[in-house]
């Protein structure tokens, strides 16, 4: 049984996207991450910044968390749940 309405609608959209074979990012329940080499990362669906330094940027992306580590990391923009990170990205960890 679904615990609340939101969870129920999320699950429905997941089932729908799976059946129709369309990307899950359309339902906006999943974060979308785009990388340009290791110098730029675009994250859509960011719920908040958990940790911010020039060698580590830790973001909340809903169900998961993502940690970018590297050197000279800078948040280029943060607006409307979209974050652009630039710098020398060395590792990306999900937890």
């Amino acid at each position: 049984m679904y615990r609340n309405k939101e969870e129920k609608s999320k699950s429905k959209s997941k089932v729908l996207s799976e059946n129709l074979q369309i990307p899950q990012t359309i339902s906006r329940s999943t974060a979308y991450i785009e990388l340009s080499g290791n110098s730029e990362a675009i994250i859509e669906g960011c719920k908040g910044v958990l940790e911010y330094g020039d060698d580590i940027i830790h973001l909340n992306i809903g169900k998961n968390e993502v940690r970018f580590s590297g050197t000279d990391l800078v948040i280029k923009t943060y607006f409307n749940e979209q974050v652009i990170i630039v710098g020398n990205i060395l590792t990306i960890d999900f937890s």
């Binding site: 910044v49 940790e51 911010y52 020039d54 948040i75 280029k76 923009t77 943060y78």
Partner: peptide, 22 residues
């Protein structure tokens, strides 16, 4: 708390760019 500050700015729809932590 710098992270909280950035999150609150985003929630209040304040556009920030070139955010550097030095």
């Amino acid at each position: 708390f710098s992270e909280r500050f950035i999150n609150l700015c985003s929630q209040n729809r304040v556009i920030l760019w070139d955010i550097k932590n030095i």
